[in-house]
Every structure is written in C-alpha cells, then in structure tokens.
C-alpha cells in the first residue's frame, strides 16, 4: 500500500520518464535555439557598444559576445575590455 501511494505521489510530483523527457527536451531545445544569425549578432554588438561607450571607454576590437550554457540554462556572455571609466557625469545626465 505504501509502495502504491509512493508510486502514485512520485508520479504526481513528476518522476515518470515522460516528465523527465519533457524537462530535458525543453532545456535542450532552448539551447539549440539559442543562436542568432551572424548578421543579428553583429547588430547586437553594435548596439551594446553604443550603450556602453556612453559610460565606459572600451576596446571594441577585442570585444566578445557569445551564447554559453551553464548549469542547464542559456546565458549571453559579453566580454568587453575596459580602457577607461568616464568619471564625468556628463554622459550619465544624458
């Protein structure tokens, strides 16, 4: 009886292989789909540069923007070498 109940509740909590498959599938599809066409990636970079240079002087040529998956979730990771932080408030007060 306990065994039956455990199995029943186990199932409700999502321990069936169907539920496992669903969860794993969702993650893998998110990862598979996490790509932008090279053109869009370039646009994204340009927009990032435009925003960041308002506040910080950066080394645009060594900037990297890419998708990475860590611990089952997808992140967009930008590595942007800083040349100098702008100390004047001019940029901030728009």
């Amino acid at each position: 009886m306990m065994d039956f109940l455990q199995r029943l509740f186990g199932r409700l909590e999502g321990s069936s292989s169907r539920t496992t498959a669903k969860t794993r599938l969702r993650l893998v599809l998110v990862q598979d789909r996490a790509t932008l066409s090279p053109g869009l990636m370039e646009n994204l970079k340009e927009d990032l540069i435009a925003v960041i240079t308002k506040y910080i002087e950066i080394d645009e040529t060594n900037m990297k923007v890419e998708f990475s998956d860590t611990d089952g979730s997808v992140a967009i990771v930008a590595s942007i070498p800083v040349k100098e932080v702008k100390r004047t408030a001019g940029a901030l007060s728009k």
Partner: peptide, 9 residues
Amino acid sequence: RHDMLTVDD
C-alpha cells in the same frame, strides 16, 4: 503508463 511523450508534449 506515463512513459512516453504525448502528442501534446
């Protein structure tokens, strides 16, 4: 038996 993805899934 909940051992296969459904069409809905």
